[in-house]
């Protein structure tokens, strides 16, 4: 079953770019990564799903309900953590969290305590006394206190120190194990790689790739690094090769295609050393981003 279904979603802002014909589905129980650089349209897509902005055309459903028409109903089961969190400065953390909980009609007191303890958040302080990182923690607790079935995270880790990032990801894994579906937008690719089972890559408002993380990193591409004479570099510039570059004595490239053919080409040159690896998501991402320019 799909928790999120997006059909040809378009949002235009006059001249400025929004998103164009975005379509993808997020399945129940998966952690879905949504990647692209700043300004590519990640937040626009997410804000449309949350009904903060209205689509120019196209539609989206969450839990089978229309994002625009049934937004309040959908919101009951969504936890949202934006990239920048803003709360009422004069409120105490606990009062803000209680206010947040009051929208869901259930007692979240115990859960608030657990989450705050886990995230090491002082509930008695005023929002405007908190550091950026601590505000982010308030955002995390606020987003998860009602045990949502769908968690939407828009660049969530900015401001969190590495230790807290770890704890936060662990928390997300626990929620996912309990059945929550997660949509994670990010431009920090290794966090996506660590968490997500599928990814969509968005570029200039359009989805350019939608694939399983495992396929993306394993089956499609190999990263070759070959220590050999520079004179041999031209031999590798064949179909299926991209991101060819030489650093010192080593030439490296991404290769998609018949591995046997590449091995035969390698046999023709004097190879001093050889590495064949699965590329990181970042390398694949760069591949998609540079190939069309």
């Amino acid at each position: 079953m799909n928790v999120i279904e997006i059909h040809h979603l378009t949002k235009s802002y006059g001249k400025a770019r929004g998103i164009v014909d975005v379509s993808f589905d997020v399945e129940e129980g998966e952690i879905f990564g949504f990647i692209g650089p700043n300004g590519a349209g990640k937040s626009t897509t997410i804000r449309t799903l949350l009904s903060l902005i209205r689509p120019t055309s196209g539609s989206a459903t969450i839990f089978g309900k229309d994002c625009v028409k049934q937004a309040p109903e959908i919101a009951k089961e969504i936890g949202y953590l934006p990239s920048e969190v803003f709360y009422y400065d004069k409120m105490k953390v606990i009062d803000l969290l209680k206010y947040s909980a009051s929208f869901y009609g259930k007692d979240c007191t115990k859960r608030i305590k657990e989450l705050a303890e886990y995230m090491d958040l002082d509930l008695k302080r005023r929002i405007d006394d908190l550091s950026y990182g601590n505000r982010k923690k308030v955002g995390i607790v606020q987003g998860l206190l009602h045990e949502p079935k769908l968690i939407i995270l828009d660049e969530p880790t900015g401001g969190l120190d590495p230790l807290m990032q770890q704890k936060f990801f662990e928390l997300l894994r626990q929620e996912n194990a309990k059945g929550a579906t997660i949509l994670l937008s990010s431009h920090v690719l290794d966090e996506v790689q660590r968490l997500c089972s599928r990814v969509a890559i968005i570029k200039e408002g359009r989805i350019i790739k939608l694939e399983k993380m495992s396929d993306l990193t394993r089956d499609n591409y190999k990263k070759f690094s070959v220590e050999c004479d520079a004179a041999a570099d031209a031999r590798f510039a064949v179909d299926g090769v991209s991101n060819l570059e030489r650093k010192g004595g080593t030439v490296s490239f991404l290769f998609k295609g018949d591995v046997d053919g590449m091995v035969k080409r390698l046999a023709e040159v004097h190879v001093r050393n050889l590495w064949v690896e699965e590329p990181t998501l970042e390398e694949i991402f760069m591949h998609y981003y540079t190939k069309e320019e």
Binding site: L50, A75, I78, F86, S100
Partner: peptide, 17 residues
Amino acid sequence: GGSTADFLLTKPRARWS
């Protein structure tokens, strides 16, 4: 103006409410 609308308007309440 204070960007708390992100918080308030993603809650399960209709905008008219």
